[in-house]
Design a protein around this nucleic acid. Structure first.
Lengths: 342, 342
DNA sequence: CTGAAAGCGCTTACAG
DNA sequence: CTGAAAGCGCTTACAG
């Protein structure tokens, strides 16, 4: 494994000069630089990142903390972030954060507290102050993408407004018997994404003088997955008497599950039941699902660019003020919603 | 940021002793060890992994090369690997490998060639010799999980046999008009997973004296996604005359797409069309999909354990001979397959 | 069982 | 514009 000394010797310069030539920092005669680069090329020299990190304090590595890999939204964010990081010459270290418990503490206290990453992007998780502190106290910036992290900058869509828009869509179609399938945790974690979506739903319902309809309260929490939506849907739609004519699902995956439940129960969509989802899942088009689109892959990229900016990686073009909160969403109407049955 | 010197001073020992006490390597008096550990604890000392790596040559980091994050199989593998790595005290660096091109070269020549990882797990990708070489020539072991990597150890299910089993299931149900929706690339990359599944299909068809049925050849390549299966399904099932009575889809995601296509075309499943998938997708049960299950999360864990064994991390319990090829699969019969219509 | 010293492979002031 | 030297924070022979 060639070291910088080998390059220097071959190029007939000192290690200092070789280092400057290769890194582009400091003065080096053009001709010398060429000679050094050639030498490096010739022997296949690649600088040891560990040695470099040790002296610069920079690792060229960003940690991504994420609660799931296997849900559409998160997978997209991860792919977007990975691509952006790679093209900036950074590694991505993945921390798949379990919801809580000792594993979670270990990620913060052991893994992230070491100096292995230059920054942390926390995707869709709600961090507490201590967790944020563990990271920032070591001088590493942290960015929350969705989710919350007290004291840390945040990049997010306006979940509350967007959920309001979804609800409004149903109301405008003349629905009055509307239910909401909230994401699990909407009732507990007060400022969570799920809670904001539920709040947005309730905003518009109240404004329209409506009350959620369904079993038991018109707002049912569902695991944010297709099976979660399916069983919540069965529960919601199982009682013919109290059945809503429209449902706002907190995610497209929940919505797909409700569609499946409706199919099982013989409830026609959209004629007997309108369904609107949230996310812009890649299957939404195929299933004709009306939804609030957001753009997670783009969000992942944006998060990386923001962090690169912080780290002084000269992404001069990124206008943080413009790129900032709230991120883009869009109502896309398809065939799963229609006017209320009369 | 406290360094080991601070710990040593506080404990009243030398840095050498502090290092030994903390790492557990070499002799240290029990009483001394306690004192050092206490000191470390007190000032919140965490060893710099960069400095340690520089001298030991070990990074406690494993690179995972994976073509997709957002497909069920890959997401599961990733989660399984991540969990196992974390509990072994290792970081996971994610390389989301684009199918080819300069990005891909960059991952091998720049990212993986540096000494940032102790080993590489390549999931579901087909590496060429040069790529394997870049890694092994730097003294780093590489493990192929599914996919292929010439010269590198491989952990995989027996795709060919398992695909044969799926086909056999349809044949035993009395089907003679059987089609196969292959994964894209089955025809080109000779030893790929997709090709093996197609080969397994053809093995059994020939053995039964059957010929694939459908449009145009009875074997259609589909993108291994739900939309991919949908459009291939539409193509396959669109001509009422040449329609098969059973389909073996190379993945559950393709199978879901075919189910959707059948629904669109008004073809009843399973009475008019039996469908069997491959993978054991988390939604298979909900959709009543008969499939060949495999266990990707477990596979990810197993891959990590194998690599840990190589790295001497004392996973003594793992019996590589037993854990080895081929990994477990199982035929799970649900409601998407039934006897051939007569 | 413990400590002094060397060294891992870089980068960065500092002189020149 | 270039080089000698120090130092980043560890670990590991080697003596004792």
């Amino acid at each position: 494994m060639p070291a910088i000394g080998d390059v220097a010797r071959l190029a007939g310069v000192s290690k200092s000069t070789a280092s400057r030539a290769l890194s582009g920092r400091g003065y080096v005669a053009e001709e010398t630089r060429l000679r050094v680069e050639e030498a490096a090329q010739r022997i296949g020299y690649i600088a040891s990142p560990d040695a470099a990190s040790l002296v610069t304090g920079r690792t060229k590595n960003v940690g991504v903390v994420i609660p799931f890999v296997n849900r559409w939204f998160f997978g997209e964010v991860l792919e977007g972030a990975e691509r952006a990081l790679l093209s900036a010459g950074y590694d991505l270290t993945l921390y798949n954060l379990a919801i809580g418990g000792p594993e979670r503490d270990r990620v913060f206290d052991f893994f992230l507290a070491r100096k292995r990453v230059d920054a942390v992007i926390a995707v869709g998780v709600d961090l507490d102050e201590r967790e944020v502190d563990t990271i920032t106290s070591r001088g590493k910036p942290i960015l929350a993408l969705g989710g919350t992290a007290p004291g840390a900058p945040r990049l997010a869509i306006d979940d509350r407004a967007a959920a309001g828009l979804a609800t409004q869509h149903l109301i405008q179609l003349g629905h009055t018997r509307i239910a909401h399938l909230a994401g699990a945790g909407a009732g507990s974690a007060a400022r969570s994404v799920q809670a904001m979506r539920t709040a947005g739903f309730q905003d518009r319902m109240s404004a329209a003088g409506l009350v959620p309809v369904g079993e038991p309260s018109g707002v049912i929490e569902a695991d944010m997955t297709l099976p979660g939506g399916y069983s919540a849907g069965l529960q919601l739609l199982g009682h013919p008497g109290a059945r809503p004519t429209a449902v706002f699902a907190a995610s497209d995956e929940i919505a797909f599950g409700v569609m499946r439940a409706a199919e099982r129960l013989g409830i026609a969509v959209p004629s007997a039941l309108s369904i609107i989802g949230f996310d812009g899942h890649e299957h939404a088009e195929l299933f004709g699902l009306t939804t609030i689109e957001q753009y997670p892959e783009e969000q992942g990229r944006l998060a990386v660019e923001t962090v690169m900016e912080w780290l002084g990686e000269g992404y001069g073009e990124v206008d943080l003020a413009t790129a900032g909160v709230p991120l883009a969403t869009r109502l896309v109407v398809r065939s799963s919603t229609t006017a209320a049955p009369r």
